[in-house]
Structures are given as structure tokens and as C-alpha cells.
Computed example of a mutant assay.
Amino acid sequence: MDPILIRPEMLIRIATDAAHGSLWAALRGLVRRPAPGESAEPELAAFEESPADPQLARALITALVQRAAQEAAFGAALERWGDIAEDEGGRVGRVTNTISGSTFHGAVIQGGDIHGMNVFNAPLPDGPMGGSQ
């Protein structure tokens, strides 16, 4: 299990965003399965008390990775969960911008977490970056 697959930011988003409730419930169920060795339940409980705390998220990730190293079936299930979480909205801090359809002059503003399509059709101002020169 690669600990990079589960990032603190992703755990925080999944734990605090109601839209990801089923993902959080799946992780909870995975953690609460009987464990032959160390469990991650104490770290899960602490994180659930303060789900926006990056240190508690890191502690939970560490406990999950340690359990995955001890129990192959848990590791495989955790890796599947991480893949699903990444695909279904755990993406944090990644931005993809596409500019197409014409030639653009001037500044480009990039941003994340913008949903839908934004079209800007304002005329360019006069000056060094656009308009009549």
C-alpha cells in the first residue's frame, strides 16, 4: 500500500463533505472489520471528533498503512477504497484548465473547484496586452 494514495486533504474532504458520505461509511466499515493485529479504530475515532485536523488525518493514514502491511486482505481492500475515493471526488489540489476554440490575448486566470462552464466575452482593453494598438 502506497501511503501517497490516501492524502490528508482527501480524507478531510471525504469526512466533512456530505456528498461523500458513502465513501466515508465504506472506510469506517473497512476499519471496523475485525483485525488480527493493530486496529486503526482509535485513530478513526479521534479523526471523527475533529475531521478538519490534518495531523489527525495523517495519524489515521499511518494507522491504515500499518494495518495494510500486517494484513494483505485489508491492504487490498484499502487500496481499492483509495482508488474509488480518488475517482469519486477525493481529488484535492489538482486543477485542469482547458482553453480552446479561438486565439486569446491577455491574461489567463486559473482556478480550482469551479463547476460548469464559464464564458468570458468581454472586449479586450486598449494597451500592451490587447485591443487596438
Rank of each mutant, 00 (worst) to 15 (best):
M1D: 11
M1G: 13
P8T: 04
P8I: 01
M10D: 00
I14R: 10
A15Q: 03
A18S: 15
H20S: 12
H20M: 12
W24G: 10
L27H: 02
L27F: 03
L27A: 00
R28F: 01
L30C: 10
V31T: 07
P34W: 00
A35I: 05
P36V: 09
G37V: 02
E38K: 09
S39I: 10
S39R: 10
E49A: 15
E49C: 00
S50T: 14
P51R: 02
P51I: 05
A59K: 11
A59D: 13
T62Q: 13
L64H: 00
V65A: 11
Q66R: 15
Q66P: 00
R67L: 04
A68M: 06
E71T: 14
F74L: 08
F74I: 07
G75C: 10
A77G: 04
R80V: 10
G82N: 06
G82M: 05
D83H: 09
E86W: 15
D87Y: 11
D87Q: 15
G90L: 01
V95K: 05
T98S: 07
T103D: 11
F104M: 04
F104Y: 15
A107R: 13
A107P: 01
V108N: 09
I109C: 00
Q110L: 15
Q110E: 11
G116M: 05
M117K: 10
N118Y: 07
V119T: 13
N121A: 13
P123N: 09
D126T: 06
G127P: 05
M129Y: 11
Q133W: 08
